[in-house]
């Protein structure tokens, strides 16, 4: 009997490693290896077809002195802030609306707001690029009635970043609404009933019950939108109309566009790899901070 269990344990271990092996094997080859290779290439000068020439830390020295690195970081963060903050607020408000117990056609409303989520960033960029055309665009036409504009959406940095952020918002608000809605529905009704008895206003219920209860969800959405936002590529690429350059003055040049520009337009694979390493460190720091804050907050809740 004891022998049988012993064999089964051994088998269980074997099965465990076996079941994990496809993941670790493929992740190692297609996930980790390229990243390790990026570090390697970042010490060379290389135009892809030619030979690799060892340059030591030159690419990194150049990188820290290159204001484009900082401006592309700035653009990325600016687009990220313009998209995530309004989006999460709008999603929370919409979730409160959808959480109304008397609401009819629930599935219909939920499906409709989730609908934009299925479109590709490329299609979104094409449509928004046309609606926000500098001359003859629909949005400038509408703004004209308010006595505003025409806004040079494609020329101006902030205006264009706003449009790019709108693309992200349009696509993701519905998704985050449903995430918040799920969290709202998970809040025990007794909490509100008790508050009701204490005579708390709806507003104070919102801040004292709702927000603390869904805090983990808020952090979940912040983390996912951070990681997605820092890698934004398709929207500015399609919107700027200048390829990898990201606008006439690089006003829409995000980190990922900068990386692609140096790799495929300038054929500087080594420098491009150094940019990737830099971006990697920045994301790692932001992710780490995120992780620390959220784990602390989750602990504080318990």
């Amino acid at each position: 009997m004891s022998k049988a269990i012993h064999i089964s344990r051994k088998e269980e271990s074997r099965a465990g490693y076996l079941f994990l092996s496809p993941f670790f094997l493929l992740f190692g080859i297609f996930g980790l290896l390229p990243i390790i290779f990026t570090f390697y290439v970042s010490f060379f000068k290389w135009d892809l077809l030619g030979t690799q020439e060892w340059v030591g830390l030159d690419n990194y020295i150049e990188l820290v002195a290159d204001e484009r690195f900082y401006s592309s970081l700035g653009n990325t963060i600016s687009i990220f802030l313009l998209s995530s903050a309004p989006q999460l607020v709008a999603a929370l408000l919409l979730a409160l609306v959808l959480n109304n117990k008397k609401l009819r056609f629930r599935t219909f409303w939920r499906s409709v707001i989730l609908f934009p989520f299925i479109t590709s960033t490329v299609a979104v960029a094409v449509v928004f690029g046309a609606m926000f055309a500098d001359n003859g665009g629909m949005v400038n036409w509408a703004l004209g009635f308010l006595g505003v504009g025409p806004v040079p959406w494609h020329a101006d940095g902030l205006a264009g970043q706003f449009v790019i952020a709108m693309m992200v918002n349009w696509r993701w608000t519905g998704y985050n609404t449903l995430i918040f809605l799920a969290a709202l529905q998970a809040i025990p009704a007794e909490l509100y009933e008790a508050a009701e008895v204490d005579g708390a206003t709806k507003l104070s219920q919102f801040f004292n019950i709702t927000i603390p209860q869904i805090r983990p969800t808020i952090f979940f959405t912040v983390v996912t939108s951070t990681i997605g936002g820092l890698q934004i590529f398709a929207e500015p690429y399609m919107f700027s109309g200048t390829g990898y350059a990201g606008g006439s003055d690089g006003q829409f040049r995000t980190m990922t566009l900068f990386l692609f520009d140096q790799a495929f337009a300038q054929l500087r694979l080594g420098y491009s790899s150094a940019i990737a390493v830099g971006l990697f460190l920045i994301i790692a720091i932001i992710a780490g901070v995120n992780f620390l804050i959220s784990s602390k907050l989750v602990k504080a809740d318990k």
Binding site: R68, P152, A155, T242, A245, S248, D249, Q262, R268, Y271
Partner: peptide, 29 residues
């Protein structure tokens, strides 16, 4: 692209020229 920044009124011709030179110097390293 630098002439575009002038046409868009974002920069004066002299600023754009200087910026273009700086950009090119980096891309041709």
């Amino acid at each position: 692209n630098a002439t575009t920044t002038v046409a868009q009124g974002k920069k004066t011709a002299d600023e754009a020229w200087a910026d273009a030179l700086a950009e090119i110097a980096k891309n041709t390293k």
